[in-house]
């Protein structure tokens, strides 16, 4: 698998320092599981964050802080929460491990040749995540974003002005992008997407159906 499209450096740094909203965090994490180069880059960011920790100005702890922690050292650890199993809603796909641990909502059709399945992230504040299937050869409606759209391809491919996106590739769209992706003819394209804000559909058809397209 050759990955040719990667998240912007800033996004990986935000991931490594824990600044991303839950849905964005998940989609970047999916890319990192597929991309050794970005994984190493994120690791380098963690090391630089360690250097920032060393260089940070110490702030005194409460007087009883050490004693409070000492008192907890021998207490049994709380048992890890049981994993949420949801076989009924887990899509029938060969998903990366990190996605198989997620909980999914109901699959639904968005438009002809396009279906989605939400990923349930109770703590996401601004972004939402979902799986998106599109039929081979499908031409998506021309759209732009009021927020950001982070996409990682899991299967199949799509293309737009910036190139062709295959498995593992990462596409970052923001308010400045106005594009019309075309799905590759070889097989359905499956992506994991994190989105903030709304899609804005263009063209007469887009304006006509936009009340019905809810992602």
């Amino acid at each position: 698998m050759t990955i040719s499209h990667h998240p912007p450096d800033e996004l990986i740094a935000d991931f490594a320092t824990g600044r991303l909203d839950e849905a964005n965090h998940l989609v970047v994490a999916v890319h990192l599981t597929q991309c050794p180069a970005c994984r190493r880059f994120a690791g380098a960011m963690e090391h630089l964050a360690g250097a920032a920790l060393e260089a940070s100005e110490p702030v005194s702890m409460r007087a009883d802080a050490f004693e409070a922690v000492l008192a907890k050292l021998d207490q049994p650890q709380p048992a890890p929460r049981a994993e949420v199993s949801s076989p009924s809603t887990l899509p029938d796909e060969d998903l990366p491990e990190i996605l198989r641990r997620c909980r999914f909502g109901k699959q639904r059709r968005v438009a002809p040749g396009l279906k989605m399945q939400p990923i349930i992230l109770p703590s996401a504040s601004q972004s939402r995540a979902f799986l998106l299937w599109s039929a081979p050869g499908a031409r998506m409606l021309q759209h732009s974003h009021s927020g950001t759209e982070l996409t990682c391809v899991l299967k199949g491919s799509f293309s737009h002005e910036a190139g062709r996106y295959g498995p593992g590739d990462f596409d970052f769209g923001d308010g400045e992008v106005d594009h019309q992706p075309v799905v590759g003819p070889e097989e359905p394209c499956l992506c994991v997407v994190a989105m903030t804000g709304d899609l804005e559909l263009h063209g007469l058809l887009g304006r006509m159906i936009s009340p019905f397209v809810r992602l």
Partner: peptide
């Protein structure tokens, strides 16, 4: 990276 580990 002890500091990096503690940071994470």
């Amino acid at each position: 990276g002890a500091a990096a580990w503690i940071f994470t």
